[in-house]
């Protein structure tokens, strides 16, 4: 499949979304709302649940499944309040020693007047910094569209996996084409140049695993998560944080050949 087809697949409204993953993977999920500062951003869903026997914190983007939900969730484009809610609940997870699992599916952080006024840059920066220093295991799964700062804000993890047809990019291909060639309609061309597919990013060493999208993929994901959390939980917290730091530290593209 070509990159552009994968982009279209990744954006398909019928694709499994955060609610699907929560239902399939976690028991007794309780959604926790609000950033304790300003409001509750529906573009990010967060809460606690049981994974096998382990209490975990789950955070992810929600795009919404129909037009009304799309609008409520701002199509998965989070505002500062969303990232601040994520930070609040990641710190809570750290306090109670719960692993954090994030599900990334966003066209990007919201580019709006209110979002800018309330410190979109600051909120994303704080979320990245918080994840980089979190003293519990963190696993991120790019399930659909992982675009720009809005995606990395929830994807600084010990393990980052992508679904086979998910895409992960510095900017939406439309945005990229618009910046590079002042022509958003050249998105297909941008897709080929940008290297956004799971396999390409795995080959670069930027992501740690690709999940094949077959009928049993959720069982596979469940197994992978269980194994990995068990592994990560064995590590000393200082080692865990140090290794996470080094993992991103090495993504310099300078010595990779």
């Amino acid at each position: 499949m070509e990159a552009y087809e994968r982009l279209m697949t990744a954006r398909d409204a019928k694709r499994p979304n955060i609610d699907f993953y929560i239902n399939e993977l976690f028991d007794d999920f309780i959604e926790l709302h609000g950033d304790r500062l300003y409001k509750d951003d529906k573009a990010i869903v967060a809460g606690i649940g049981i994974f096998h026997d382990i209490p975990v914190t789950v955070i992810g983007h929600r795009k919404g499944k129909d037009t009304q939900e799309n609008i409520e969730c701002n199509f998965g484009m989070a505002s500062p309040e969303g990232y601040r809610k994520a930070v609040r609940l990641m710190k809570q997870a750290e306090k109670f020693n719960r692993p954090v699992i994030t599900f990334v599916d966003t066209p990007g952080a919201y580019p709006g007047v209110e979002a800018e006024s309330n410190g979109q840059s600051n909120a994303i920066a704080e979320s990245i910094a918080c994840m980089s220093n979190l003293k519990v295991p963190v696993i991120s799964i790019i399930t659909g569209e992982g675009s720009s700062g809005g995606a990395i804000a929830l994807a600084v993890a010990d393990k980052v996996w992508m679904l086979e047809n998910a895409v992960y990019s510095i900017l939406s291909p439309e945005g990229f084409a618009s910046i590079m060639w002042k022509d958003a309609s050249r998105a297909k061309e941008a897709c080929d140049i940008m290297k956004i597919t799971a396999q390409e990013l795995y080959d670069f060493g930027i992501i740690d695993g690709v999940i094949r999208e077959n009928k049993k993929f959720i069982v596979t994901l469940d197994g992978m998560l269980y194994e990995e959390i068990k592994n990560l939980k064995k590590k000393k917290l200082e080692v865990l944080v140090k290794e996470r730091y080094m993992k991103f530290r090495k993504m310099d593209g300078l010595y990779n050949e």
Binding site: I128, N133, V156
Partner: peptide, 22 residues
């Protein structure tokens, strides 16, 4: 972020923010 280096540029956000926080 530098468009010409694709996702590697996005990773520099994580890398620099982590370094500063540490």
């Amino acid at each position: 972020a530098r468009m010409q280096e694709g996702l590697f540029s996005l990773m520099q956000m994580a890398k620099t923010a982590a370094a500063v926080r540490h």
